[in-house]
Design a protein around this nucleic acid. Structure first.
Lengths: 221, 221
DNA sequence: CGTGTATTCTCGTTATCTATGGAATACACG
DNA sequence: CGTGTATTCCATAGATAACGAGAATACACG
């Protein structure tokens, strides 16, 4: 193998890491903050062994780094450029692959019998609305992900607990729900639940990952 | 397979396309402009059958599009977002994989026994220098790629012909050579040749692909 | 409507990747 | 220093991908 082939072999490695759907899912989870192997296994539905193997692959591709803390090992994205690469990848897929949009609508549950659509709100529009104070920004991700980084001023009610904690949401204000990313189902599930309860809800266009990469502030703890 | 898995399967496809070194090389060639299958086979060193198969793969991944013109079929990148994705991929590889830098230096021939380094010049610095007019911008790619798009005002002398056409370059001006991209060897080969002939040469940091994606003007024909 | 050229298709061989169970390792805790 | 937990290593069977030679297809040209 000549040196040029060797160079392209090296340059292609990160793409190899992202080329498996389960690894892409792991990257999306890691974009929410660092996580241990078995937390990732639980969240992804993979076996621990398989998860570990995929994380090794991602590490050798240069996409993730890890840190030991006692018995467990926490993996994290290797950098913000990696998060941006993942977002760019998904954006290219959506723009140039016809099969993505129906798959997205199916996964997010956007195809209603009555033809209604979930209303979205852009980042800039949300920022403008938030300044007038007449909107509740609702983070429906699990608590650990909220703690690792969220939109300043957002209220945290994980999707699993939302049905039982409806009373924490003032009835007179519009709600804007968000979760991990453009392709995460949680904010859409939350919207259906809240709409059934008679609330006015919109979904933020893009999750906290896109928010952060756009240079918007993120609060933690 | 549930619908979420199906969605990630779809989103990962473009990465699958970029995950093979030869396909990444084809993408780099296509970033210079559209090309027929056998032109790509020749330029990449692959067999025609294999090249065609890789192009099919890239097409199904949504990374390239094609156009029939008589007997031949011209492939092209599916869009500028795709070119940007490829650049971002290479950038991530370089930033997070230790093996990339030595492979790059080996492929570009940057390791000299005397420890000397090739001098680079950034885009902004080149633009500033070009306005004073005391610099020759030299495009050393094949003529067809120059025709498809080049830096305005650049002089075209393909690397193969450079040794025979040295007299076309004024001796009193500094030369800035460029080619396809950050990882393309041609401008470095040209630099060595020109330095041996006693010329003062620098290499543009990034090729015409990065130039275009940075929003700089590109001339064609 | 035959001939030549460019591209794609078919198919078989070989190599690589994935998932998983069980063993091995690393660390914390009493 | 044994026990329990988290992670990685090892071996393997099944699936998928790469390559190239030859056949088939699509088009241009006379």
């Amino acid at each position: 193998m000549d040196s040029t082939a060797a160079l392209y072999e090296e340059l292609a490695q990160p793409a190899k890491g992202l080329s498996h759907p389960k690894r892409l899912l792991l990257m999306e989870l890691l974009a929410q903050g660092e996580r241990s192997v078995d937390a990732l296994a639980n969240a992804s539905g993979l076996g621990v062994t398989t998860t570990s193997a995929h994380l090794q692959t991602l590490r050798h591709c240069g996409l993730v780094a890890r840190r030991r803390d006692g018995q467990r090992i926490h993996y994290r994205l290797a950098g913000d450029d990696v998060a941006a690469l993942v977002v760019a990848l998904k954006s290219v897929a959506r723009a140039h692959r016809a099969a993505v949009e129906p798959a997205r609508r199916a996964a997010l549950g956007l195809d209603f019998a009555d033809g209604s659509e979930v209303e979205q709100i852009g980042r800039d529009a949300l920022i403008a609305r938030a300044q007038t104070g007449d909107v509740i920004v609702l983070d429906v991700r699990p608590e650990t992900e909220f703690a690792a980084g969220h939109i300043p001023g957002a209220l945290s009610i994980p999707i699993d607990e939302l049905a039982d904690r409806l009373n924490e949401l003032p009835t007179e204000l519009e709600i804007v729900a968000y979760c991990r990313s453009e392709y995460c189902v949680m904010s859409y599930d939350a919207t259906r639940l809240l709409q059934a309860a008679g609330r006015r809800v919109r979904v933020l266009d893009g999750g906290v990952t896109e928010w952060r990469l756009a240079g918007q502030p993120v609060a933690s703890s």
